[in-house]
């Protein structure tokens, strides 16, 4: 499969890349390429111009300080192998092995995942559970988008067409924070049929979902059920209330009823991991 013809430009700086996409709806940024290139080969995407940002080393850094900043071009493996980050945010250690395969994790980037916002991606739910903000640069300069406002719909984020995601900033969790990610994977594609991220810290419990919804969302019923503590009774209640107020999508592989059942089971599994 051969993509539609396009022109290719290797960006020399963030400013260069942003200038290229400004006013050019035909242009797409190319990072790890492990979502975009397959989509181009299937001709689901046909950008007229590719702006290759993989040479922008300033976007590859991961820094751990008062918060954790992950550069847009940090790969899945860069994150997984960053011991200090994983020590603070072990949820990445739980989730990243679920992403793609070893070749995908070596090339695919966290920033690309978050900008692409695939409804069955794993790390979208992880980011929503952790909170923080997404930094973007556009023609008007830099801005910071709270994670809670960032995911808009299927493959749609708060990023403007002429904005480029440059980094993601995640607050350090408090002492004693517990977190995990569990997934029921599609046996062929490996994508999430249902993925559940749970983070419990001083700011209360967060339970988020991917795979079964159009965008990552909080499961407010489950969060409320465990707000006073996680025990057998509150886990049962969280399972019962898991899809409260949330629209669960069905498709050819898993209809709404089955996926709704899976959501409860994944919530149960995740919460049991949190207390074990």
């Amino acid at each position: 499969m051969i993509p539609v013809t396009f022109s290719y430009h290797k960006a020399e700086s963030v400013g260069d890349a942003v200038a290229r996409i400004a006013g050019n709806p035909e242009a797409k940024l190319l990072a790890g390429g492990h979502s975009l290139v397959p989509a181009m080969k299937l001709r689901l995407a046909a950008p007229g111009e590719l702006i290759d940002i993989t040479g922008l080393d300033e976007l590859k850094a991961i820094t751990v300080g008062e918060s954790i900043q992950i550069g847009a071009l940090a790969t899945y493996n860069d994150i997984l192998h960053h011991h200090e980050l994983i020590a603070h945010l072990p949820i990445f250690g739980a989730a990243i092995p679920h992403v793609g395969d070893r070749q995908v994790r070596a090339r695919g980037t966290f920033g690309g995942c978050i900008a692409h916002a695939d409804p069955a991606a794993d790390l979208t739910a992880v980011l929503l559970a952790l909170g923080g903000h997404v930094n973007a640069t556009g023609p008007a300069g830099e801005r910071s988008i709270p994670v809670e406002e960032y995911f808009v719909d299927l493959w749609t984020t708060a990023l403007a067409p002429d904005e480029m995601l440059t980094s993601v900033v995640i607050p350090l969790p408090g002492d004693g924070a517990r977190m995990t990610y569990v997934k029921h994977r599609h046996p062929a594609s490996g994508y999430a049929v249902v993925g559940i991220a749970v983070v419990v810290d001083d700011n209360g419990p967060r339970v988020t979902i991917t795979g079964a919804t159009s965008k990552p969302e909080h499961l407010a019923g489950a969060e409320d059920a465990i707000s006073a503590g996680i025990n057998d009774a509150s886990i049962d209640l969280a399972v019962a209330r898991a899809t409260e107020g949330v629209h669960i999508n069905g498709d050819l592989y898993a209809d709404e009823e089955y996926r709704t059942h899976l959501v409860g089971q994944m919530v149960k599994k995740a919460l049991q991991q949190i207390v074990s």
């Binding site: 080969k41 590719l50 070749q103």
Partner: peptide, 10 residues
């Protein structure tokens, strides 16, 4: 690397 998922130009 999966060579079907990178462009030679890169």
């Amino acid at each position: 690397t999966k060579s079907c998922t990178m462009f030679a130009a890169q």
